[in-house]
Simulated assay, not measured.
Amino acid sequence: MSGSGTYASPPCMAAEVDPAYFDPQGVDPAQVRDVARWRRAERIRLAALREELGQSGRAQVSAAIATHLGTFLAAHGARAGAMVAGYWPIRGEPDLRPLLARLHEMDVRVALPVVETRAAPLVFRRWTPRMRIARGHWNIPVPPAEAEALVPDILIAPCLGWDGACFRLGWGGGYFDRTLAALSPRPFAIGIALAAARLPTIYPQPHDVPMDAIVTEEGRAAERTNTA
């Protein structure tokens, strides 16, 4: 499927499947449950921020983010031959597909994330603007099974919320965290978010893996310096 729609890419919706989920590695189960309850409430609030923008507002935000992100990507090696993993937008997420299409035209190899195994790291399949799109887990559009598998040099992930330490609040499935923890070498990870979705902290837990940078409609909002 192509064009605008209501689908999204990040397959991170396990919290909707199991709303009582909490990190079993947490030192204090009560504290972990408190954080899980807080995060569920924040996800509802932050998702409403997107909806309040309306279609035209989301389009303006998407265009502004794409402009800033394009410049940022160029400075971080997104050139011919590089592999960049984007996402298919759903639920009001910024739509960066026009930027991904431009990267494709520049001979950057573009991929989208796919859940091939539940509760496991994501895999990435090559995407081109005119390719046939299949339906993956949670009905999310993904490249078909025969598409080339890629390992990204740069990974772009949508965020519901974010903090100044570049930790990302997603839908709660933990797929991007598992993926970044498993990939070696690790790709340069960029979170995409609304500026208004910044939080003082997401109360990071043992399983949380920070992004390397956050980009919003206002530009680069945060970047880690110890990304080695």
Rank of each mutant, 00 (worst) to 15 (best):
L100T: 03
V110R: 10
A197I: 01
D163N: 05
A8Y: 06
L103M: 09
V27F: 11
I90D: 02
Q60E: 11
D177R: 00
A75N: 09
F22E: 14
V35D: 11
P210N: 07
A82P: 10
I154T: 11
A213K: 08
T6D: 12
L100D: 03
A157D: 01
D95L: 00
G92C: 01
V17Y: 06
C166D: 05
V110E: 06
W127Q: 00
D212K: 00
V142P: 03
I90M: 12
L100Y: 00
R45V: 00
Y175K: 02
I214P: 00
N226R: 10
A147M: 01
S62A: 12
E42K: 01
M211C: 14
P129H: 02
V215R: 02
P19Q: 10
P19K: 14
H68C: 03
R79G: 12
R39G: 01
L99W: 06
S62Y: 04
W127E: 03
R135A: 12
H137G: 10
S184M: 10
F22P: 06
E223F: 01
L155G: 01
P24G: 11
Y175H: 10
W38K: 15
A66D: 12
C166Y: 03
R126W: 00
P89W: 05
L103F: 05
A222M: 08
A15S: 14
I65R: 05
A20T: 13
P113N: 07
A134S: 14
A228L: 05
D177C: 02
H207V: 09
P141W: 03
Y87P: 07
Y21L: 14
R135W: 06
I44V: 13
D153L: 05
A8G: 14
R33P: 03
G170T: 09
F176Q: 06
F72Y: 14
I190E: 07
T128V: 08
A221Q: 02
V142C: 14
A20R: 14
R132N: 05
A222L: 04
T67M: 12
G54M: 13
A147G: 00
C159H: 03
E218V: 08
A182L: 07
R97E: 05
T225G: 13
T117E: 12
A20L: 12
E146Y: 10
A14S: 11
A134H: 04
A195E: 14
R125L: 06
A59N: 07
A101H: 08
R33D: 14
T201A: 15
A78M: 00
T71E: 10
M1L: 13
L180S: 11
A64I: 03
R97S: 01
R58L: 15
R97P: 00
L73R: 14
L183T: 00
G92L: 00
E223V: 04
V17C: 09
G136L: 07
G191H: 08
G5M: 06
W38I: 08
W88F: 15
G136K: 04
A111T: 02
P113G: 09
T67N: 11
V115P: 05
R102D: 13
T117S: 07
A221D: 04
P200E: 10
E93F: 02
E16V: 10
R125Y: 05
L99M: 14
R58I: 03
P144V: 09
R58D: 03
R39M: 02
M83E: 10
L155N: 07
W88H: 08
V123W: 01
I90A: 15
S62K: 08
E16R: 13
P89D: 13
P206V: 00
P89C: 10
P141L: 09
A221Y: 02
L99Y: 04
E93R: 03
I133L: 15
